[in-house]
Design a protein around this nucleic acid. Structure first.
Lengths: 201, 201
DNA sequence: CAATATACTGTATATAATTACAGTAATTAT
DNA sequence: ATAATTACTGTAATTATATACAGTATATTG
């Protein structure tokens, strides 16, 4: 799918905003008025261009007949197994997506990560649970974080964090603390857990 | 808010379905065609009646200008503390509601129940968690259920169920099984847990 | 360098859609 | 008993909207 131009993106945003605000898409005249066009035809031609690039579908003969394509209704990815090496949000890691509008949580969730293993059972995080991850950088010691250590992604409690020592604790007596020296090992805190979802009890 | 007639309810449903299917509300003509009216004015008058009862707002002069009122986007109640005696879904028990459209789960969730106490920590259900409850009657032994025993509502695992003996097990070594004789004690299985949500980790 | 894409103005028209007016008939509330 | 509500048909006017056609100008691609 080709990229939209800046102006086209503006128009797509306007359509989404209109739907959010009113519950239905704008007319050509609405678009023209909002963006200051003097002709509704300017909007028309933008819409055709955006349709050509696959971001919307125009239903001919229907008023306000603009249908957003699935790809752009802003979905939250659910990450299954993370392939070693690549970025977490790489396409091949995405198990499915959830429309952002269905997001139950007020928190800022950038993606859901499916939990593998039992290293966090003592805080009630089980295998196959989905944890909501926020990429925000304001995590603190004590938070449960998503960490990447040398290409391996793991969910642990952040216990200590300094220039030379980071301690990640599995919440399960059978496991030992992971102690990393960020100067010798590659360590990235990808985000912190802000929610948990268990789909099948 | 007054109740809708059967026909009006049909029309409101049609509007919701149309929005779901197309992304925008139907026209009067659409409604008339779908329901077999020979005049778009039949639809018009129904819409006015539904608006009068507060379920929709009609934006005059705008095509497809039908806005659903908040109240009818079908909300899932979140039940906090259950007052002894009354029904679970009584108004005073409802802590808040969540739009059904925001429901992440495919399961049939009739309400969310906020967990009190630590009797289920061994299966990862913690105080303040929300469990999604389905009122469906096809729960089985082994399921986690919401039970009401003599006016007290509790979440436990259903271990055994016969005419004269029902065993409910707290999933916490510090608690003992609850054994109830449905013939002498009042016992209602309100539903079974089909999901779990933890909003703050 | 020509073709295509982008980003518009300006006009016009067919059709889509709202909405008013005039009825009919059955049911329900006062 | 009478008024109001419900549930429509039928017609028609007005307005809202999509959309075609004719331009202008600049930027980008092959």
């Amino acid at each position: 799918m080709k990229n939209l131009t800046k102006r086209q993106e503006e128009i797509l945003d306007l359509i989404k905003t209109h739907i959010l605000d009113f519950g239905f898409p704008p007319t050509r005249a609405d678009i023209a008025k909002t963006l200051g066009f003097k002709s509704p035809n300017a909007a028309e031609q933008h819409l055709r261009a955006i349709e050509k690039k696959g971001f919307i579908k125009i239903l001919s003969g229907a008023s306000r007949g603009i249908v957003l394509s699935d790809s752009d209704c802003d979905e939250i990815p659910v990450i299954g197994l993370v392939a070693a090496g690549g970025p977490i949000l790489a396409q091949e890691n995405i198990e499915k997506t959830i429309p952002r509008s269905r997001n139950l949580f007020s928190n800022d969730i950038d993606y859901y990560l499916r939990v593998k293993g039992d290293s966090m059972v003592d805080v009630g995080i089980y295998e196959e649970d989905l944890i909501g991850v926020s990429k925000s950088k304001d995590f603190k010691v004590g938070n449960i974080v998503v960490a990447r250590i040398n290409d391996e992604v793991t969910v642990k409690t952040l216990i200590e964090m300094s220039q030379t020592k980071v301690v990640l604790r599995p919440e399960n007596q059978n496991y030992k603390d992971i102690i990393v020296n960020p100067e010798t090992d590659e360590l990235v805190i990808e985000g912190s857990c802000v929610a948990l979802v268990r789909e099948s009890i």
